[in-house]
Write a protein that binds this DNA or RNA. Structure first.
Length: 470
RNA sequence: CGGGGAGUGGCGCAGUAGGUAGCGCGCCUGCUUUGGGGGCAGGAGGCCGGGGGUUCGAGUCCCCCCUCCCCGACCA
């Protein structure tokens, strides 16, 4: 029966349905009352807060400072950069009324903030001494979407968007790549434990208004790709549109070179689809709102006291611990609920264990159980958390490798992309090839060197990673 | 926007010769149980998406409208 695995549809049976059931069953999010909107519940938001903390620290390490720009943007701003407006006009929400009356000038709800940020950059940047200007904001953005899916695509979503201005194109390129690597790639690999392809986007996939887009791409559990973070070089496009000029040492005026980059709550969708299994979510310890749940099997004074003591010990060691003493609910029900939420380690404490000064440690990643002496509990939990982190990455990497095929021709790529990614010489694709692939629902996810590393600007002889995507 | 489907307790659904609205899960109370979705007993909760029509009588038949979901085109 399909419902054997903790009440969820199996991934193999119906992956999209499994995804929705995990999002709902783990109490992460649900649809808002307005089409395409999302309510992020405490468990989902707790994951986001941890992820946000990791990204924020790395962004600050890269020198950017946080700021905040308004939600409402004058409609006229959007039109100032030609490609940008063409790219975003179809997805904007426009406010036409306020205070019960039509607005004299309609206001756009930000789909992204390049325009309003650069309006201010023009004021703030006068001299080469004002550069580089490195600003990040955490915010919501709103876009019209045809079809929405919780976390993966919603009309309103949370993200961070960075905006920078530099004196030279080289500096801008370096910074865009630095963010991609040090903030995004590092967070996705070492915190989220998702194996990641990095590379350059083709012109077709480039951000509206950018000259180059760099991206992190992950493979989901169904073989499809998900873009996990992008970093754009805007060249001088917005600088010209918003007249952002600086005076160099000699007093000559030049337009700045810019970048913008973003990562969103979509990352949570990726987390689910990469690590989840038929029993629900599996969280990497770094992103688990509770890393350990101490389950009281049966309530009495012994188990209550013991579970509190264990929780204290683990907390003192810096772990996020939660006690589940809701013994009015059955044991099985509670075990399944925590499993679905993806808590990495469960400790079960009942009279049987306490009689021997032991506890049962359950690892979520393989659902293995082990009876452990109380004195070595902390060490066992730590080791289980480390194993979790290592295994999640290893399993995801093995899956991606098993579903990535090196091919030589477009025809072979189409065939291989039915199962996952195909990697082929970029020269075999080209713009015409991209059109062909698009006919099969396949896109070029990124261009990279043959060894998988990031290419340089205008570098030839690249490989194209292609596949179906979310 | 094109093609398909659905609106009935919180969730998932059943409900056609039109005749007083049901089931599972969840929820509340009590007892019992608790080592992988417990058991028994009692209980609460519905303008059947909206409006009009046919009829003695409409969840069910007719007309109009609204919303949502799935597949495709757009996208972090």
């Amino acid at each position: 029966m399909a419902k054997d695995a903790g009440g969820l549809t199996s991934r193999a049976e119906d992956f999209p349905r499994w995804y929705q059931e995990v999002v709902a069953g783990a109490e992460m999010a649900e649809n808002g009352p307005v089409r395409g909107t999302m309510v992020i519940r405490p468990w989902g938001f707790g994951i986001w807060e941890l992820l946000q903390g990791e990204l924020d620290r790395r962004i600050k390490d890269a020198g950017a400072e946080n700021a905040y720009f308004p939600l409402f943007i004058p409609e006229a701003f959007l039109g100032l950069e030609k490609e940008h407006v063409e790219g975003f006009s179809p997805e904007t929400w426009v406010v036409t009324h306020g205070g019960g009356k039509p607005l004299e000038e309609p206001v756009v709800v930000r789909p992204t903030s390049e325009t309003v940020v650069n309006h201010f950059f023009a004021k703030w940047i006068q001299s080469h001494r004002d550069l580089p200007l490195l600003v990040n904001q955490w915010s919501n953005v709103v876009r019209w979407e045809m079809r929405t899916r919780l976390f993966l695509r919603t009309s309103e979503f949370l993200w961070q968007e960075g905006h920078t201005a530099h004196a030279t194109e080289q500096e801008a390129t370096d910074y865009a790549v630095r963010i991609l690597r040090d903030a995004y790639l590092d967070t996705i690999e070492s915190v989220m434990r998702i194996p990641t392809f990095v590379g350059l986007k083709t012109d077709r996939e480039r951000f509206a208004g950018a000259i180059r887009t760099w991206a992190c791409e992950g493979m989901m559990g169904d073989g499809k790709a998900l873009q996990l973070g992008t970093s754009h070089e805007l060249g001088q496009n917005f600088a010209r549109a918003f007249d952002i000029q600086y005076a160099d040492e000699s007093g000559a005026r030049s337009y700045v070179h810019q970048t913008s980059w973003g990562a969103s709550t979509r990352l949570i969708g990726g987390l689910i689809m990469v690590h989840g299994d038929d029993f629900g979510l599996r969280l990497p310890p770094a992103l688990a709102p509770s890393q350990v749940v101490v389950m009281v099997v049966r309530a009495d004074e012994h188990t209550d006291r013991a579970s509190a003591a264990i929780a204290d010990e683990l907390r003192s060691a810096g772990l996020r611990v939660r006690i589940d003493d809701q013994t009015a609910a059955s044991f099985g029900r509670r075990a399944i609920d925590w499993e679905r939420k993806g808590v990495p380690v469960r400790i079960e404490i009942g009279p049987r264990d306490l009689a021997e000064d032991r506890a049962v440690v359950v690892r979520r990643f393989d659902r293995s159980k082990q009876s452990v002496g109380l004195s070595s509990l902390l060490a066992e939990v730590r080791s289980a958390l480390e194993r979790t982190s290592a295994v999640l990455h290893a399993e995801a990497l093995a899956f991606r490798e098993a579903h990535t095929t090196s091919v030589e021709t477009l025809e072979e790529a189409v065939e291989a992309a039915a199962e996952g990614f195909a990697v082929l010489p970029a020269s075999e694709v080209g713009e015409a090839g991209e059109d062909t692939l698009a006919g099969y629902g396949i896109t070029v996810r990124c261009l990279q060197r043959a060894d998988g590393s990031l290419p340089g600007v205008d570098e030839g002889d690249l490989s194209a990673v292609v596949g179906k995507s979310y």
